[in-house]
Amino acid sequence: MSGGLPSRHSGEILHPDREVLDPAVKGTLTVLKVCSTLKVHKVVVMSSIAAVTSNPNWPQDRLKDESCWSDKEFCKEGEDWYSLAKTLAEQAALEYARNNRLNVVTLCPPFVFGPLLQSSVNASSKLLIYVIKGCIISAAITSITCPYQDCDSTEELSVTY
């Protein structure tokens, strides 16, 4: 993966379980296990809005809350591996927390813009590039209001929570 939003259009993900899904879930659980071992009191898992927005069956007039998840089958059918990985990792984190009495809070920030920490373009910035270039964006993205947030306020929120 070259730092973009993995999708069926990228042609980059050949083995989604091995390349995206397993690393997301196993990485999250590894960090939580270390936190349990070190007797950490509260863990803030930085998830993504992708864990809750890919659900065509969610009622339009209902606010998204802790019961809202991206539809896993819908994500698989559309080869939306990023949303599926975020959904699976967050669900695994919450299940681990329940089973191990670890206080876990998840944050699902929207598209986050700011200075890049890596040399490749991340998913949020790639969306912005597509819009600026006038590229065609999938119906799923054009039919929703895209929330966005500055990276500094995301960092501040995760530190103060």
Rank of each mutant, 00 (worst) to 15 (best):
V31G: 11
N103C: 02
S48I: 09
F74G: 06
S47V: 05
V44D: 04
T53N: 05
K76E: 15
L32V: 10
S125Q: 06
Y82M: 12
G134A: 06
Y161L: 13
T154N: 10
M46F: 11
S153V: 13
A92G: 00
E79C: 10
F74R: 06
R62A: 13
P110I: 06
V104P: 04
Y148I: 04
S2D: 14
R8L: 12
A140W: 13
K126T: 05
T145Y: 12
P115N: 03
L21E: 02
N103F: 03
T106N: 06
L5D: 07
A93H: 04
R8M: 12
T30G: 05
S143T: 10
E19M: 13
A93Y: 03
S7P: 06
C68W: 10
T30I: 01
Q60P: 14
L128M: 02
P109N: 05
T106Y: 03
I141S: 12
K133P: 00
L102Q: 09
I129V: 02
C108F: 03
K64I: 04
D65F: 12
K26D: 07
R101D: 12
C75N: 04
D71R: 04
I136W: 13
A50F: 08
R62V: 14
I132C: 02
A50D: 07
S2Y: 00
Y96G: 01
G4M: 00
S153T: 13
V45A: 07
L117Y: 04
N57A: 14
G134C: 03
S83N: 07
E12G: 09
L84W: 01
T154V: 14
W81Y: 03
K86M: 01
G27Y: 01
S138W: 07
L21N: 01
S70W: 03
V45F: 04
Q91K: 11
W58P: 02
L21P: 06
S138P: 06
E77C: 06
D80M: 00
L128P: 01
C135L: 15
E73S: 08
T53G: 03
S36K: 15
V40D: 13
S125A: 00
P147C: 15
V121Y: 09
T53Y: 03
P6I: 02
Y130S: 13
A89W: 01
P56R: 13
E155P: 00
C146H: 11
R18A: 08
I141Y: 13
S120W: 00
V34A: 15
E12R: 08
S153G: 02
K33L: 09
L117K: 07
R62S: 11
L84Y: 00
N103A: 01
S54P: 01
D80E: 11
R98I: 07
V104L: 00
L21R: 04
T154K: 10
L63P: 08
L29A: 10
T145Q: 14
H15T: 00
N55R: 11
N57F: 14
E155K: 11
A24R: 04
P23K: 05
C75I: 03
L88A: 04
K64E: 08
A85S: 14
I141N: 10
S83V: 02
A51S: 12
L14Q: 15
R62F: 10
L128R: 05
F113W: 05
P23I: 08
K39Q: 15
V112N: 05
F111I: 08
S124V: 05
A123W: 00
I141V: 13
K133D: 06
L94E: 03
D17W: 14
A89L: 08
L157A: 13
C68D: 09
